[in-house]
Computed example of a mutant assay.
Amino acid sequence: MTLLRTVARPMLASMFVAGGTMALRKPDALAAKAQPIADVLRKVAPQARLSPRNVVRLNAAVHIAAGTALATGHLPRTSALVLAATMPVTTVSGHPFWNETDPVARRNQRAHFLKNVSLTGGLLMSTLDPEPHKPWLGTRARNTAVAAKDSLVDHVDDLRK
């Protein structure tokens, strides 16, 4: 891993690990904002126990796990993609500045909303950041499939001889 990646990945992941830890420790503080998400998820999966507190805990656990993986360089592109996938719902439910009537609160929520949008952009860029001399997972999968096909063709040719 290059020096830039060694420094940048933990910096990008820090907000997710810290925020996830705080949310996991105090889910009640965010449960009210998660209520609409829990309601939608209960319609999709009625058998799941999806209270607002559990939704907050689940999101927090994902942020901690994927943030730690990103920070330590384990599956960095996958963990960045997982974090980026959680951000739209987290951002819209957590910082609805358009609902604020107080100008100061509105500015504060807008700043946090835009911070999350910026973090999402950084995460999406991280999904494209290849390790030096290491092909992307899709390329490795394609190469493995091509090698398996070539091996199978060779075996079939040997059988025909």
Rank of each mutant, 00 (worst) to 15 (best):
Q35W: 01
N59K: 05
V40F: 00
G121L: 06
T86G: 15
A147R: 14
M15F: 06
A60C: 07
S151R: 11
V17D: 03
L70P: 01
L3G: 11
V146K: 10
T78R: 02
P10I: 10
A69V: 05
V55G: 00
F97S: 07
R140I: 02
K33L: 01
D154A: 15
V146W: 07
L128M: 13
T91F: 00
G67C: 10
D154R: 15
M11R: 00
T144V: 06
K26M: 13
K26S: 14
R140K: 09
H74Y: 08
T90M: 07
R5G: 15
V153R: 12
P36F: 00
L70V: 07
N116M: 01
P76I: 13
V89M: 14
T72H: 04
A71S: 00
F97G: 07
D157E: 15
H95R: 06
T139P: 15
K43M: 06
V7T: 12
R9G: 04
R106L: 04
W98A: 10
T6K: 12
D154L: 13
H155F: 13
L124W: 05
N99K: 15
T90H: 06
F113R: 02
N54Y: 07
A18V: 15
G20S: 00
H112P: 04
M15R: 12
P88N: 10
R110K: 06
P135W: 05
V40T: 03
K26C: 01
A147K: 14
L4M: 14
V82W: 02
D154H: 11
P88S: 13
V153N: 12
V117T: 14
P88T: 12
D150L: 13
S79A: 15
A60T: 08
E100K: 14
Q109T: 14
A8K: 02
S126K: 00
A147T: 15
R53H: 12
S151H: 09
T91M: 04
A45I: 03
S118M: 06
P27E: 09
R77D: 11
M125C: 08
V82Y: 01
S93P: 06
S79K: 02
N99W: 10
S14F: 09
L119P: 00
V56F: 03
L119A: 12
N108Y: 09
S126Q: 13
N143Y: 00
